[in-house]
């Protein structure tokens, strides 16, 4: 299946979209560019730690709501479109912590409405989240707990180094929340650097962290996480991230997103020199 087909079939306007990876690491950026090309609207984006992918989707006008515990550009600064959109009120956000996202997905996996956490208590989160609630341990220990609601994703979009044609995905480095996103989303799109044989997945450390039975589509896109990283193949591209921050979004869209195949994108992003820069 092509990326164009996968996004067109499995991502609908208004969906709650889970995005894998963390910060500048292993983000499905090629899929995000395709979402912008297809002009999807009114998406709620949920990611553990967000960065350029959330910012791009907001810049592209695809997002109405963000659920993330952090959206920034790390050492490069703030995420400009995210910041502007929140400050102007053009998107809504759900204030999250690391645990509220991790446990929200865990609820979905366990089919329970909430999970308890011995954190968040004492913060101002309850003032801006009417869907969380402090309660006392019903089993009588007297412990105060915070109930965090479940997160049911419509679709998960994940980028991994290796996948097979059946939809088994293997991640060489940290998995973060990708496995729970894959297992709980109604539909799961995996983009991968390399299509490998099932046997290769079986012999890789961690095996199929993303299991075939929950995968809807697998699309091979080498450098599909650029300008973020995909361990163990390449690191993030600091030059491109700086370029992104210095370019008006409409111009960026013209240069790198609209009518760009993966080859044309990589050429525009610096071609062979860029690839040699980032290869680990």
């Amino acid at each position: 299946m092509s990326l164009e087909e996968a996004i067109s079939i499995y991502v609908q306007d208004g969906d709650l979209v889970g995005i894998g990876g963390l910060s500048f690491w292993r983000k499905p950026i090629s899929a995000c560019r395709e979402i912008i090309r297809q002009n999807k609207k009114d998406l709620t984006v949920c990611t553990f730690v967000g960065g350029i992918e959330v910012d791009m989707l907001i810049g592209g006008g695809c997002v109405s709501h963000v659920k993330s515990c952090f959206v920034g550009m790390e050492i490069f600064g703030m995420a400009p479109h995210y910041r502007k959109a929140v400050e102007s009120g053009s998107i809504k956000i759900s204030e999250e912590s690391e645990a509220s996202i991790a446990l929200g997905l865990k609820c979905s996996y366990l089919k329970v409405p909430f999970m308890p956490l011995k954190g968040i208590i004492g913060t101002d989160f309850p003032k801006v989240r009417d869907d969380i609630k402090q309660f006392e341990d019903p089993l009588g220990s007297g412990t105060q707990l915070m109930a965090l609601p479940k997160i049911d994703l419509d679709v998960a979009i994940l980028h991994v180094p290796y996948a097979d044609e059946y939809g088994n995905g293997n991640i060489a480095g940290a998995v973060w929340l990708d496995d729970d996103m894959a297992k709980t989303a109604k539909k799961t799109i995996i983009t991968c650097e390399k299509l490998v044989e099932l046997e290769d997945i079986v012999h890789s450390p961690g095996k199929a962290q993303l299991p075939m039975q929950t995968t809807s589509a697998v699309v091979k896109i080498p450098f599909g996480a650029h300008p973020t990283s995909c361990y163990p193949i390449y690191t993030f591209d600091p030059n491109h991230i700086q370029r992104y921050l210095k370019t008006e979004f409409e111009q960026y869209k013209q240069n790198f997103i609209l009518n760009k195949s993966n080859v044309q994108y990589l050429d525009a992003a610096g071609g062979a020199q860029t690839i040699l820069n980032i290869l680990l």
Partner: peptide
């Protein structure tokens, strides 16, 4: 004000989960 911030920061990540204990 959270509903109408003058400046929005990236977020607190895990600080809300762990700072207290």
């Amino acid at each position: 004000d959270w509903n109408n911030p003058k400046l929005r920061f990236p977020g607190c990540a895990g600080i809300a989960d762990f700072s207290m204990f």
